[in-house]
Write a protein that binds this DNA or RNA. Structure first.
Lengths: 215, 215
DNA sequence: GTCTATATTTCGATAGAC
DNA sequence: GTCTATCGAAATATAGAC
Protein backbone atom coordinates (compact mmCIF):
# COMPACT_ATOMS: atom_id res chain seq x y z
CA UNK A 1 0.00 0.00 0.00
CA UNK A 2 1.03 3.59 -0.35
CA UNK A 3 2.45 5.83 2.33
CA UNK A 4 0.28 7.93 4.56
CA UNK A 5 1.68 11.17 3.13
CA UNK A 6 0.71 9.98 -0.34
CA UNK A 7 -2.82 11.33 0.02
CA UNK A 8 -4.74 10.82 -3.21
CA UNK A 9 -2.38 12.29 -5.81
CA UNK A 10 -5.09 12.24 -8.46
CA UNK A 11 -7.35 14.36 -6.31
CA UNK A 12 -4.49 16.75 -5.68
CA UNK A 13 -3.96 17.23 -9.39
CA UNK A 14 -7.67 17.68 -9.95
CA UNK A 15 -7.85 20.22 -7.14
CA UNK A 16 -5.01 22.23 -8.66
CA UNK A 17 -6.76 22.13 -12.02
CA UNK A 18 -10.09 23.27 -10.62
CA UNK A 19 -8.66 26.15 -8.60
CA UNK A 20 -6.34 27.21 -11.41
CA UNK A 21 -9.20 27.21 -13.93
CA UNK A 22 -11.33 29.40 -11.70
CA UNK A 23 -8.39 31.78 -11.11
CA UNK A 24 -7.48 31.96 -14.80
CA UNK A 25 -11.01 32.79 -15.98
CA UNK A 26 -11.41 35.35 -13.18
CA UNK A 27 -8.06 37.15 -13.26
CA UNK A 28 -6.67 36.23 -16.65
CA UNK A 29 -3.55 34.26 -17.50
CA UNK A 30 -0.94 36.90 -16.70
CA UNK A 31 -2.98 38.03 -13.71
CA UNK A 32 -2.76 34.62 -12.05
CA UNK A 33 0.47 33.81 -10.20
CA UNK A 34 1.70 30.38 -9.22
CA UNK A 35 2.15 31.64 -5.66
CA UNK A 36 -1.51 32.65 -5.45
CA UNK A 37 -2.56 29.28 -6.84
CA UNK A 38 -0.42 27.40 -4.33
CA UNK A 39 -1.88 29.44 -1.51
CA UNK A 40 -5.44 28.74 -2.67
CA UNK A 41 -4.75 25.01 -2.99
CA UNK A 42 -3.06 24.98 0.41
CA UNK A 43 0.32 23.69 -0.74
CA UNK A 44 3.70 25.19 -1.59
CA UNK A 45 4.47 26.72 -4.94
CA UNK A 46 7.12 24.14 -5.78
CA UNK A 47 4.60 21.34 -5.29
CA UNK A 48 2.58 22.55 -8.25
CA UNK A 49 5.63 22.04 -10.43
CA UNK A 50 5.61 18.39 -9.49
CA UNK A 51 2.20 17.99 -11.16
CA UNK A 52 2.68 20.44 -14.02
CA UNK A 53 6.06 21.29 -15.52
CA UNK A 54 5.22 24.95 -16.15
CA UNK A 55 2.53 27.57 -15.79
CA UNK A 56 1.81 27.35 -19.49
CA UNK A 57 1.31 23.58 -19.40
CA UNK A 58 -1.00 23.99 -16.40
CA UNK A 59 -3.00 26.53 -18.33
CA UNK A 60 -3.25 24.31 -21.40
CA UNK A 61 -4.45 21.48 -19.18
CA UNK A 62 -7.10 23.75 -17.64
CA UNK A 63 -8.45 24.64 -21.05
CA UNK A 64 -8.31 21.31 -22.83
CA UNK A 65 -9.52 19.25 -19.86
CA UNK A 66 -12.01 21.98 -18.99
CA UNK A 67 -14.16 21.54 -22.05
CA UNK A 68 -13.93 17.76 -22.03
CA UNK A 69 -17.41 16.38 -21.59
CA UNK A 70 -19.10 19.75 -21.98
CA UNK A 71 -20.62 18.55 -25.26
CA UNK A 72 -21.98 15.21 -24.09
CA UNK A 73 -25.41 16.43 -23.04
CA UNK A 74 -25.76 18.51 -26.17
CA UNK A 75 -24.93 15.51 -28.34
CA UNK A 76 -27.56 13.48 -26.51
CA UNK A 77 -30.12 16.22 -27.09
CA UNK A 78 -29.25 16.29 -30.76
CA UNK A 79 -29.79 12.54 -31.02
CA UNK A 80 -32.96 12.42 -28.93
CA UNK A 81 -35.70 11.45 -31.39
CA UNK A 82 -38.43 11.87 -28.81
CA UNK A 83 -38.05 15.66 -28.91
CA UNK A 84 -39.88 17.83 -31.37
CA UNK A 85 -37.63 20.08 -33.43
CA UNK A 86 -38.76 23.12 -31.46
CA UNK A 87 -38.27 21.46 -28.09
CA UNK A 88 -34.87 20.19 -29.16
CA UNK A 89 -33.76 23.78 -29.75
CA UNK A 90 -35.29 24.86 -26.44
CA UNK A 91 -33.58 22.07 -24.53
CA UNK A 92 -30.27 22.63 -26.28
CA UNK A 93 -30.30 26.37 -25.56
CA UNK A 94 -31.12 25.75 -21.91
CA UNK A 95 -28.15 23.37 -21.74
CA UNK A 96 -25.84 25.94 -23.38
CA UNK A 97 -26.99 28.49 -20.82
CA UNK A 98 -26.36 26.05 -17.99
CA UNK A 99 -22.81 25.22 -19.13
CA UNK A 100 -21.83 28.80 -19.82
CA UNK A 101 -23.25 30.33 -16.66
CA UNK A 102 -22.45 27.63 -14.10
CA UNK A 103 -19.10 26.21 -15.25
CA UNK A 104 -15.80 28.00 -15.92
CA UNK A 105 -15.71 26.84 -19.54
CA UNK A 106 -18.26 29.48 -20.47
CA UNK A 107 -15.88 32.21 -19.36
CA UNK A 108 -12.92 30.83 -21.28
CA UNK A 109 -13.49 32.70 -24.54
CA UNK A 110 -12.00 36.01 -23.35
CA UNK A 111 -9.21 34.09 -21.63
CA UNK A 112 -8.32 32.31 -24.86
CA UNK A 113 -8.38 35.63 -26.68
CA UNK A 114 -5.88 37.00 -24.16
CA UNK A 115 -3.32 34.22 -24.56
CA UNK A 116 -3.88 33.60 -28.28
CA UNK A 117 -0.96 35.82 -29.36
CA UNK A 118 1.47 33.91 -27.12
CA UNK A 119 -0.01 30.40 -27.07
CA UNK A 120 -1.65 30.00 -30.47
CA UNK A 121 -2.08 26.22 -30.16
CA UNK A 122 -4.52 26.58 -27.27
CA UNK A 123 -6.70 28.87 -29.33
CA UNK A 124 -6.79 26.26 -32.07
CA UNK A 125 -7.61 23.51 -29.62
CA UNK A 126 -10.40 25.47 -27.96
CA UNK A 127 -11.95 26.53 -31.22
CA UNK A 128 -11.80 23.09 -32.78
CA UNK A 129 -12.69 21.12 -29.67
CA UNK A 130 -15.34 23.36 -28.19
CA UNK A 131 -16.66 26.22 -30.32
CA UNK A 132 -16.70 24.52 -33.70
CA UNK A 133 -18.37 21.41 -32.34
CA UNK A 134 -21.02 23.48 -30.58
CA UNK A 135 -21.65 25.31 -33.82
CA UNK A 136 -21.95 22.07 -35.77
CA UNK A 137 -24.41 20.59 -33.29
CA UNK A 138 -26.71 23.59 -33.18
CA UNK A 139 -26.49 24.24 -36.91
CA UNK A 140 -27.32 20.59 -37.48
CA UNK A 141 -30.42 20.84 -35.30
CA UNK A 142 -31.57 23.91 -37.21
CA UNK A 143 -30.95 22.37 -40.61
CA UNK A 144 -32.73 19.18 -39.61
CA UNK A 145 -35.74 21.24 -38.56
CA UNK A 146 -35.69 23.13 -41.84
CA UNK A 147 -35.45 19.89 -43.81
CA UNK A 148 -38.44 18.45 -41.92
CA UNK A 149 -40.50 21.55 -42.50
CA UNK A 150 -40.61 22.44 -38.80
CA UNK A 151 -38.56 25.61 -39.26
CA UNK A 152 -38.50 28.38 -41.79
CA UNK A 153 -35.42 28.33 -44.01
CA UNK A 154 -33.26 31.05 -42.48
CA UNK A 155 -29.50 31.54 -42.61
CA UNK A 156 -27.94 29.07 -40.11
CA UNK A 157 -24.79 31.17 -39.65
CA UNK A 158 -26.75 34.24 -38.59
CA UNK A 159 -28.94 32.10 -36.35
CA UNK A 160 -25.93 30.43 -34.80
CA UNK A 161 -24.47 33.81 -33.89
CA UNK A 162 -27.80 34.92 -32.43
CA UNK A 163 -27.97 31.80 -30.28
CA UNK A 164 -24.42 31.80 -28.87
CA UNK A 165 -23.64 35.53 -28.88
CA UNK A 166 -26.14 36.60 -26.22
CA UNK A 167 -25.15 33.71 -23.95
CA UNK A 168 -21.39 34.34 -24.06
CA UNK A 169 -21.98 38.07 -23.73
CA UNK A 170 -24.19 37.50 -20.72
CA UNK A 171 -21.52 35.38 -19.05
CA UNK A 172 -19.02 38.19 -19.65
CA UNK A 173 -21.38 40.84 -18.31
CA UNK A 174 -21.97 38.77 -15.18
CA UNK A 175 -18.21 38.67 -14.66
CA UNK A 176 -17.84 42.38 -15.28
CA UNK A 177 -20.57 43.29 -12.80
CA UNK A 178 -19.69 40.64 -10.23
CA UNK A 179 -19.39 43.14 -7.38
CA UNK A 180 -22.24 45.44 -8.39
CA UNK A 181 -25.03 45.73 -5.86
CA UNK A 182 -27.62 45.98 -8.65
CA UNK A 183 -26.09 43.16 -10.66
CA UNK A 184 -29.26 41.10 -10.96
CA UNK A 185 -31.32 44.08 -12.02
CA UNK A 186 -28.84 45.02 -14.74
CA UNK A 187 -28.83 41.48 -16.07
CA UNK A 188 -31.85 39.43 -14.99
CA UNK A 189 -30.49 36.05 -16.00
CA UNK A 190 -33.69 34.00 -15.86
CA UNK A 191 -35.65 36.63 -17.72
CA UNK A 192 -32.99 36.99 -20.43
CA UNK A 193 -32.68 33.24 -20.93
CA UNK A 194 -36.43 32.73 -21.29
CA UNK A 195 -36.87 35.71 -23.57
CA UNK A 196 -33.89 34.72 -25.69
CA UNK A 197 -35.12 31.17 -26.19
CA UNK A 198 -38.63 32.37 -27.00
CA UNK A 199 -37.37 34.84 -29.58
CA UNK A 200 -35.16 32.26 -31.29
CA UNK A 201 -38.11 29.88 -31.54
CA UNK A 202 -40.27 32.71 -32.80
CA UNK A 203 -37.73 33.33 -35.55
CA UNK A 204 -37.46 29.68 -36.49
CA UNK A 205 -41.23 29.23 -36.74
CA UNK A 206 -42.07 32.61 -38.31
CA UNK A 207 -43.71 32.51 -41.74
CA UNK A 208 -41.33 32.46 -44.70
CA UNK A 209 -40.45 35.73 -46.45
CA UNK A 210 -43.41 37.04 -48.43
CA UNK A 211 -41.53 37.24 -51.72
CA UNK A 212 -41.05 33.49 -51.68
CA UNK A 213 -44.80 32.84 -52.03
CA UNK A 214 -44.65 33.14 -55.81
CA UNK A 215 -42.40 30.09 -56.09
CA UNK B 1 7.78 79.53 -29.26
CA UNK B 2 8.53 76.21 -27.64
CA UNK B 3 11.82 74.36 -27.68
CA UNK B 4 12.77 72.00 -30.41
CA UNK B 5 12.84 69.05 -28.02
CA UNK B 6 9.30 69.89 -26.93
CA UNK B 7 7.79 67.99 -29.82
CA UNK B 8 4.01 68.11 -29.48
CA UNK B 9 3.45 66.84 -25.95
CA UNK B 10 -0.25 66.39 -26.59
CA UNK B 11 0.48 64.08 -29.50
CA UNK B 12 2.89 62.14 -27.35
CA UNK B 13 0.26 61.57 -24.69
CA UNK B 14 -2.28 60.59 -27.32
CA UNK B 15 0.19 58.18 -28.90
CA UNK B 16 0.84 56.51 -25.55
CA UNK B 17 -2.91 56.20 -24.99
CA UNK B 18 -3.55 54.69 -28.42
CA UNK B 19 -0.74 52.14 -28.20
CA UNK B 20 -1.57 51.28 -24.59
CA UNK B 21 -5.25 50.76 -25.43
CA UNK B 22 -4.39 48.41 -28.27
CA UNK B 23 -1.94 46.51 -26.05
CA UNK B 24 -4.40 46.25 -23.15
CA UNK B 25 -7.26 44.90 -25.26
CA UNK B 26 -4.91 42.46 -27.01
CA UNK B 27 -2.83 41.10 -24.11
CA UNK B 28 -4.90 42.05 -21.08
CA UNK B 29 -4.03 44.37 -18.22
CA UNK B 30 -1.57 42.14 -16.37
CA UNK B 31 -0.19 40.91 -19.69
CA UNK B 32 0.87 44.39 -20.72
CA UNK B 33 4.12 45.72 -19.26
CA UNK B 34 5.21 49.32 -19.13
CA UNK B 35 8.50 48.32 -20.74
CA UNK B 36 6.68 46.82 -23.74
CA UNK B 37 4.56 49.94 -24.04
CA UNK B 38 7.59 52.24 -23.95
CA UNK B 39 9.28 50.12 -26.60
CA UNK B 40 6.22 50.30 -28.86
CA UNK B 41 5.92 54.05 -28.40
CA UNK B 42 9.64 54.47 -29.02
CA UNK B 43 10.49 56.15 -25.71
CA UNK B 44 11.90 55.07 -22.39
CA UNK B 45 9.80 53.53 -19.69
CA UNK B 46 10.37 56.40 -17.27
CA UNK B 47 9.00 58.86 -19.84
CA UNK B 48 5.57 57.24 -19.64
CA UNK B 49 5.49 58.09 -15.95
CA UNK B 50 5.81 61.75 -16.83
CA UNK B 51 2.45 61.59 -18.64
CA UNK B 52 0.70 59.08 -16.37
CA UNK B 53 1.51 58.64 -12.68
CA UNK B 54 0.94 54.87 -12.68
CA UNK B 55 0.00 51.93 -14.84
CA UNK B 56 -3.44 51.88 -13.28
CA UNK B 57 -4.09 55.54 -14.07
CA UNK B 58 -2.94 54.95 -17.64
CA UNK B 59 -5.35 52.05 -17.91
CA UNK B 60 -8.25 54.06 -16.53
CA UNK B 61 -7.47 56.83 -19.02
CA UNK B 62 -7.47 54.28 -21.87
CA UNK B 63 -10.90 53.02 -20.90
CA UNK B 64 -12.68 56.26 -20.02
CA UNK B 65 -11.21 58.26 -22.90
CA UNK B 66 -11.59 55.26 -25.18
CA UNK B 67 -15.37 55.24 -25.15
CA UNK B 68 -15.69 59.03 -25.27
CA UNK B 69 -17.53 59.96 -28.42
CA UNK B 70 -18.40 56.38 -29.30
CA UNK B 71 -22.07 57.17 -28.70
CA UNK B 72 -22.37 60.38 -30.71
CA UNK B 73 -23.32 58.79 -34.01
CA UNK B 74 -25.78 56.49 -32.31
CA UNK B 75 -27.47 59.43 -30.59
CA UNK B 76 -27.76 61.20 -33.93
CA UNK B 77 -29.33 58.10 -35.46
CA UNK B 78 -31.80 57.90 -32.61
CA UNK B 79 -32.82 61.55 -33.17
CA UNK B 80 -32.96 61.36 -36.97
CA UNK B 81 -36.66 61.78 -37.79
CA UNK B 82 -36.05 61.18 -41.50
CA UNK B 83 -35.42 57.48 -40.86
CA UNK B 84 -38.18 54.91 -40.75
CA UNK B 85 -38.28 52.86 -37.58
CA UNK B 86 -36.90 49.84 -39.42
CA UNK B 87 -34.13 51.77 -41.10
CA UNK B 88 -33.22 53.39 -37.82
CA UNK B 89 -32.59 49.96 -36.33
CA UNK B 90 -30.64 48.91 -39.40
CA UNK B 91 -28.50 52.03 -39.34
CA UNK B 92 -27.93 51.80 -35.60
CA UNK B 93 -26.86 48.15 -35.78
CA UNK B 94 -24.46 48.91 -38.62
CA UNK B 95 -22.95 51.65 -36.48
CA UNK B 96 -22.62 49.33 -33.49
CA UNK B 97 -20.88 46.79 -35.72
CA UNK B 98 -18.54 49.48 -37.02
CA UNK B 99 -17.53 50.71 -33.57
CA UNK B 100 -17.07 47.26 -32.09
CA UNK B 101 -15.13 45.74 -34.98
CA UNK B 102 -12.93 48.68 -36.00
CA UNK B 103 -12.12 50.43 -32.71
CA UNK B 104 -10.58 49.00 -29.53
CA UNK B 105 -13.61 49.93 -27.44
CA UNK B 106 -15.47 46.92 -28.78
CA UNK B 107 -12.85 44.60 -27.27
CA UNK B 108 -12.90 46.25 -23.87
CA UNK B 109 -15.63 44.14 -22.29
CA UNK B 110 -13.37 41.14 -21.52
CA UNK B 111 -10.64 43.52 -20.41
CA UNK B 112 -12.98 45.20 -17.94
CA UNK B 113 -14.05 41.81 -16.67
CA UNK B 114 -10.39 40.94 -16.01
CA UNK B 115 -9.62 44.03 -13.92
CA UNK B 116 -13.05 44.36 -12.26
CA UNK B 117 -11.97 42.51 -9.08
CA UNK B 118 -9.00 44.86 -8.57
CA UNK B 119 -10.24 48.14 -10.11
CA UNK B 120 -14.00 48.12 -9.49
CA UNK B 121 -14.47 51.80 -10.29
CA UNK B 122 -13.46 51.28 -13.92
CA UNK B 123 -16.09 48.59 -14.31
CA UNK B 124 -18.71 50.98 -12.98
CA UNK B 125 -17.53 53.76 -15.29
CA UNK B 126 -17.53 51.51 -18.34
CA UNK B 127 -20.92 50.06 -17.62
CA UNK B 128 -22.55 53.39 -16.85
CA UNK B 129 -20.78 55.41 -19.52
CA UNK B 130 -20.81 52.93 -22.37
CA UNK B 131 -22.92 49.80 -22.00
CA UNK B 132 -25.93 51.24 -20.17
CA UNK B 133 -26.17 54.19 -22.55
CA UNK B 134 -25.99 51.90 -25.55
CA UNK B 135 -28.75 49.79 -24.04
CA UNK B 136 -30.90 52.83 -23.38
CA UNK B 137 -30.50 54.14 -26.93
CA UNK B 138 -31.34 50.87 -28.63
CA UNK B 139 -34.15 50.00 -26.25
CA UNK B 140 -35.58 53.48 -26.84
CA UNK B 141 -35.55 52.95 -30.59
CA UNK B 142 -37.34 49.64 -30.21
CA UNK B 143 -39.97 51.00 -27.83
CA UNK B 144 -40.57 54.00 -30.08
CA UNK B 145 -41.18 51.65 -32.98
CA UNK B 146 -43.55 49.55 -30.89
CA UNK B 147 -45.46 52.66 -29.77
CA UNK B 148 -45.82 53.80 -33.39
CA UNK B 149 -47.05 50.40 -34.50
CA UNK B 150 -44.00 49.77 -36.69
CA UNK B 151 -42.79 46.88 -34.56
CA UNK B 152 -44.43 43.98 -32.83
CA UNK B 153 -44.48 44.30 -29.04
CA UNK B 154 -41.65 41.98 -28.00
CA UNK B 155 -39.52 41.99 -24.85
CA UNK B 156 -36.96 44.80 -25.20
CA UNK B 157 -34.50 43.16 -22.78
CA UNK B 158 -34.34 39.95 -24.76
CA UNK B 159 -34.08 41.92 -27.99
CA UNK B 160 -31.32 44.09 -26.57
CA UNK B 161 -29.30 40.99 -25.68
CA UNK B 162 -29.87 39.55 -29.17
CA UNK B 163 -28.64 42.76 -30.75
CA UNK B 164 -25.48 43.34 -28.71
CA UNK B 165 -24.54 39.76 -27.82
CA UNK B 166 -23.67 38.53 -31.31
CA UNK B 167 -21.64 41.68 -32.03
CA UNK B 168 -19.52 41.55 -28.89
CA UNK B 169 -19.08 37.81 -29.30
CA UNK B 170 -17.99 38.28 -32.90
CA UNK B 171 -15.38 40.86 -31.83
CA UNK B 172 -14.07 38.37 -29.27
CA UNK B 173 -13.98 35.53 -31.79
CA UNK B 174 -12.07 37.71 -34.23
CA UNK B 175 -9.52 38.34 -31.50
CA UNK B 176 -9.29 34.68 -30.59
CA UNK B 177 -8.73 33.59 -34.20
CA UNK B 178 -6.50 36.52 -35.16
CA UNK B 179 -3.69 34.28 -36.42
CA UNK B 180 -5.83 31.55 -37.97
CA UNK B 181 -5.34 31.10 -41.69
CA UNK B 182 -9.03 30.32 -42.16
CA UNK B 183 -10.20 33.14 -39.91
CA UNK B 184 -12.51 34.75 -42.46
CA UNK B 185 -14.14 31.44 -43.31
CA UNK B 186 -14.80 30.64 -39.65
CA UNK B 187 -16.35 34.06 -39.10
CA UNK B 188 -17.48 35.75 -42.30
CA UNK B 189 -17.97 39.21 -40.83
CA UNK B 190 -19.96 40.81 -43.64
CA UNK B 191 -22.23 37.82 -43.96
CA UNK B 192 -22.87 37.63 -40.22
CA UNK B 193 -23.59 41.35 -39.91
CA UNK B 194 -26.07 41.34 -42.79
CA UNK B 195 -27.78 38.18 -41.61
CA UNK B 196 -27.92 39.40 -38.02
CA UNK B 197 -29.50 42.73 -38.98
CA UNK B 198 -32.01 41.02 -41.27
CA UNK B 199 -33.05 38.56 -38.57
CA UNK B 200 -33.52 41.30 -35.96
CA UNK B 201 -35.72 43.24 -38.37
CA UNK B 202 -37.59 40.07 -39.19
CA UNK B 203 -38.30 39.61 -35.49
CA UNK B 204 -39.38 43.20 -34.99
CA UNK B 205 -41.80 43.12 -37.92
CA UNK B 206 -43.10 39.59 -37.47
CA UNK B 207 -46.83 39.23 -36.78
CA UNK B 208 -47.86 39.34 -33.11
CA UNK B 209 -48.30 36.08 -31.16
CA UNK B 210 -51.42 34.24 -32.35
CA UNK B 211 -52.91 33.87 -28.87
CA UNK B 212 -53.21 37.65 -28.63
CA UNK B 213 -55.83 37.78 -31.43
CA UNK B 214 -58.69 37.16 -29.02
CA UNK B 215 -57.96 40.38 -27.17
C1' DG C 1 5.03 14.04 -3.14
C1' DT C 2 5.79 17.95 -0.43
C1' DC C 3 8.69 20.90 1.66
C1' DT C 4 12.40 25.07 2.44
C1' DA C 5 15.47 27.82 0.21
C1' DT C 6 17.09 30.15 -3.63
C1' DA C 7 18.34 31.36 -8.48
C1' DT C 8 17.05 34.44 -12.14
C1' DT C 9 14.23 37.44 -14.54
C1' DT C 10 10.90 40.91 -15.05
C1' DC C 11 7.73 43.91 -13.00
C1' DG C 12 6.13 48.83 -11.59
C1' DA C 13 8.04 52.82 -10.00
C1' DT C 14 11.64 56.42 -8.64
C1' DA C 15 15.99 59.46 -8.55
C1' DG C 16 18.50 62.64 -10.71
C1' DA C 17 21.27 64.38 -14.84
C1' DC C 18 20.42 67.10 -18.97
C1' DG D 1 10.14 66.28 -21.33
C1' DT D 2 13.23 62.57 -22.01
C1' DC D 3 16.95 60.14 -20.66
C1' DT D 4 20.19 56.52 -17.84
C1' DA D 5 20.49 54.00 -13.85
C1' DT D 6 18.53 51.66 -10.24
C1' DC D 7 15.53 50.18 -6.44
C1' DG D 8 12.40 46.81 -4.12
C1' DA D 9 8.86 43.61 -4.95
C1' DA D 10 7.00 39.83 -7.25
C1' DA D 11 7.21 36.72 -11.00
C1' DT D 12 8.54 31.76 -12.92
C1' DA D 13 11.24 28.10 -12.10
C1' DT D 14 14.82 25.03 -9.88
C1' DA D 15 17.78 22.50 -6.27
C1' DG D 16 17.89 19.44 -2.89
C1' DA D 17 16.43 17.70 1.87
C1' DC D 18 12.98 14.61 3.81
Amino acid sequence: MSDLKDTQPLDRRAKILAIATEAFVTNGYAGTSMADLASSVGIQKASIYHHFPSKQSLFIACVTEGYEGALQKLEAIRADASLSDANRIRTAMAEIYRVNLTTPVGRMAPLIAEVAPNIPEVARAFHGGFIARHYALVTGMIEDGIARGSFTALDPIGLRQMIFGPIIFLAMEREMTADFADRDQLNPVDHIRQSHIDLILRLLTSPPPSHSTHN
